[in-house]
């Protein structure tokens, strides 16, 4: 008997508390609506909205790499940046999600942090799922290794890729070691591009150190068809070509998996 009374008491108490909290919240919300007319207008606008029908899950995901590739140092906010702390976990999530069968990498970048760019390139190259890249507009400097890191790469005919030596910005210590450090950094980029594309080292270095192509710099601005001719990019094409290639690679992977089983 004693126990039963106690339980009823507790329930009553909880209900009472609930009502009090709810009542408080309601009056608080009403006050907010009255003091902030724009919030009220937004709520009225939202009343007319219907729910968007849920599209089926896409088996192909897309990774846009736009603006500057941002790495160890945060760039001033007027730069449009792609941050590695956003992209690297996304790549891991893509690898882990069994519903995702392929990845398209969209590139329109002016380059950026060497180590962030190389990190992204290595992450994309080591994905077990088929990957295809499209270079749109520009895939300059560190955009080059990212573009070639996928299983198959496309460039649209109007896109360009600037290949030039790595330079130092900021503090320069005038010792031969500084040059060696830069040279090693450059070798990392060159080696990655060599091992993930059909271009040979001599051609790539020729493009990198060419004179007279860029107005105030050493290097070459490689346009669409030229990039394919040099063996840097696999083919010319846009969305249609990239999607059919990716679907083809996904089919191949499925068939290979079936044969193993």
């Amino acid at each position: 008997m004693y126990v039963r009374q106690l339980t009823i008491l507790v329930i009553c108490f909880q209900e009472g508390a609930c009502n009090i909290v709810m009542g408080k919240d309601k009056t608080k919300q009403d006050n907010q609506d009255q003091t902030n007319p724009s919030a009220l207008v937004q709520k009225i606008q939202q009343l007319g909205q219907s729910t968007v029908p849920q599209a089926p899950d896409s088996n192909i995901h897309v990774l846009p790499i736009i603006g500057q590739v941002e790495g160890h140092v945060q760039l001033p906010p007027q730069n449009k940046t792609t941050k590695y702390e956003h992209l690297i976990p996304q790549i891991v999530a893509i690898e882990q999600n069994p519903k995702i069968e392929g990845l398209i990498v969209l590139l329109n970048t002016v380059g950026g942090d060497v180590e962030a760019g190389l990190a992204l390139s290595e992450m994309i190259a080591s994905l077990s799922k088929p990957t295809v890249s499209i270079v749109l507009g520009g895939g300059h400097s560190i955009g080059v290794p990212i573009a070639v890191s996928t299983d198959y790469s496309y460039i649209v005919p109007t896109a360009t890729m600037t290949i030039h030596p790595i330079r130092l910005t900021g503090l320069v210590i005038g010792v031969p070691q500084t040059f060696e450090y830069l040279d090693k950094m450059q070798d990392r980029v060159i080696n990655f591009v060599m091992s993930h594309s059909k271009i040979d080292e001599e051609t790539f270095k020729d493009l990198m150190f060419a004179k007279g192509n860029l107005t105030r710099d050493i290097g070459t601005n490689v346009v669409g068809a030229d990039a394919v001719e040099h063996g840097l990019i696999d083919g010319i094409g846009g969305v249609n070509e990239a999607m059919s290639k990716l679907n083809e690679l996904i089919e191949q992977k499925k068939q290979a998996g079936d044969m193993l089983q």
Binding site: V73, G111, V114, T162, T169
Partner: peptide, 8 residues
């Protein structure tokens, strides 16, 4: 930090 970009 080394930025590899054609921008100034």
């Amino acid at each position: 930090m080394i930025l590899y970009t054609p921008l100034s």
